[in-house]
Nucleic acid binder design. Sequence first.
DNA 1: TAAACTTAGTTACGTAAAGTAATCAATTTA
DNA 2: TAAATTGATTACTTTACGTAACTAAGTTTA
Lengths: 110, 110
Amino acid sequence: MTQPTICPKFEKAISLLSQRWMALVIYQLLLGTQRFSEIQSSIGISGKVLSDRLKELEHLDIVKREVIPQTPVLIEYSLTEKGHSMEPILRTIENWSQDWVNPESKVSAD
Amino acid sequence: MTQPTICPKFEKAISLLSQRWMALVIYQLLLGTQRFSEIQSSIGISGKVLSDRLKELEHLDIVKREVIPQTPVLIEYSLTEKGHSMEPILRTIENWSQDWVNPESKVSAD
DNA sequence: TAAACTTAGTTACGTAAAGTAATCAATTTA
DNA sequence: TAAATTGATTACTTTACGTAACTAAGTTTA
């Protein structure tokens, strides 16, 4: 028994990044400030889930939400300092994928 | 429109790591060869999902499965070269989590 | 011989998360 | 007044996950 007990901070980071679309939303915002519909069309996420994810990212101080009172109202999303601090994670995954991922075969087992 | 189109290899890596428990299973195997029940108790995953994840990881050549014909039969799981090549990803997440994650607050929004 | 134990894995069933599409609210334009 | 636009929500369906009981094969115990 005596399982090594995984670090709670690490476990929390993993549970964040394991949520579907989470990493892609952050990755997309690394390109700069974007609006709701831009993120939506660039990664193909549904409005419902994007709304959920952005709320959680805002809550975690990873994403900043700014209302631009124009015609019609615009809402701009951008990364906070904490959000930008995640760039190495995304880059490491990006680099690994270039070396090791075969885009042909399926991810799921047959 | 003309969305930037995310790299398929990157997208596939993300969809792999976005599956629940996937990263933790690999992280656990970075410690060395382990048996089914060891992985299960160390990260608290159900037998059903662990079975699914190990099958997929084996299919993707990230995990190697070895049958030890003993009494009762033992099955050892270990990382392949491709599996070990993912270590930097896990370490980067680990490092980030130490600097930025507050283990007190919830991951999900209230 | 038969019951009980061990390890790896599966099956059935219930719950939770995600996808789809229609709709809403606010504002401007035709 | 009606249409269009942007961000967001609601109702409903589908998929993923969790729980717990169970199977299979061999071994020890009674």
